[in-house]
């Protein structure tokens, strides 16, 4: 289980997160929606301390970290419990697809090399890249790179996988293959928090949808409820803008 309590984050005087509470149960898929600048990516990056929250508490599994003065070790352990899939893929450029997936296993979890390689091959086959094991990221398309990114996250066997707009940097025709992979692993009961702009995807794959605006959670609920009958005015406006058919089919 992941529990965030009163997470705050300021850049200088600008308060980006104004005390966020969020609980994600084991096996749950939570989608975070919201306009740009609403702080959703910052929130996600606070969970593995790529962004330093100014205040609050993060709890993943048995690990509980007070955000004000965390020790280096706490940060390190926190990162060990989560994995992230980045908007810009961020694959290790100088390593092949298989090495990218192995890296965390070998370096961080100290898994023997052959075993890590075996696991890496399995996972790459699972995301449909069994034929690209020894390709460098520069030789892969965006969609393929992102699928390697997902395999890399899966390899760590984390408590939660954090997806930071996993399809935003992709060409439209490549979005489908990545979403298909995420859909597949969502069914396996892996806990996931997904920041996304793909409304249909969020509605279909998430157990719960959280709508954020201006650094606060405005509304959250089951996808069907939230999309069909949002309670808050701001949510309604946002959803209307994001689903153009509703606007043009008057």
């Amino acid at each position: 289980m992941i529990r965030l309590t009163q997470i705050r984050k300021s850049f200088g005087r600008n308060e980006v997160l104004k005390g966020i509470d969020l609980t994600v149960r084991k096996g749950e898929v939570v989608a975070i929606l919201g306009p740009s600048g609403s702080g959703k990516t910052t929130l996600l990056r606070c969970i593995n301390y790529l962004e330093r929250p100014s205040d609050g508490e993060i709890e993943i599994g048995e690990l509980r970290v007070k955000c004000k003065h965390p020790s280096k070790q706490e940060i390190h352990r926190l990162r060990g419990k989560s994995a992230m899939v980045f908007q810009q893929y961020n694959l290790f450029k100088h390593k092949t697809a298989a090495e990218n997936v192995m890296e965390g296993l070998v370096v961080v979890q100290k898994v023997p090399k052959e075993e890590a390689r075996k696991r890496s091959v399995e996972l790459l086959e699972k995301v449909g890249l069994g034929a690209k094991l020894d390709a460098y990221p520069s030789q892969l398309s965006g969609g393929q790179q992102q699928r390697v990114g997902i395999a890399r996250a899966l390899a760590l066997n984390p408590e939660v996988i954090l997806f930071d707009e996993p399809t935003s940097a992709l060409d439209p025709e490549l979005v489908g293959e990545v979403l298909a992979v995420i859909r597949k692993i969502a069914k396996e009961g892996i806990t996931m928090i997904i920041v996304t702009h793909e409304m249909n995807f969020a509605q279909e794959v998430a157990n719960r949808v959280v709508f954020m605006d201006q650094g606060a959670v405005v509304e959250e609920g089951a996808p069907n409820e939230l999309f069909r009958s949002p309670k808050e005015e701001r949510t309604r406006q946002f959803l209307q803008r994001m689903t153009p058919e509703a606007v043009y089919s008057i």
Partner: peptide, 27 residues
């Protein structure tokens, strides 16, 4: 070296030294 490379290394669970030695320095 792209900042994202370091972030990815941290996200995978590496320490600062590991990230520097294995990811940043070779690049």
């Amino acid at each position: 070296v792209d900042r994202g490379q370091v972030e990815a290394a941290y996200a995978v669970g590496m320490t600062g030294y590991q990230a520097f030695g294995r990811i940043v320095l070779p690049q």
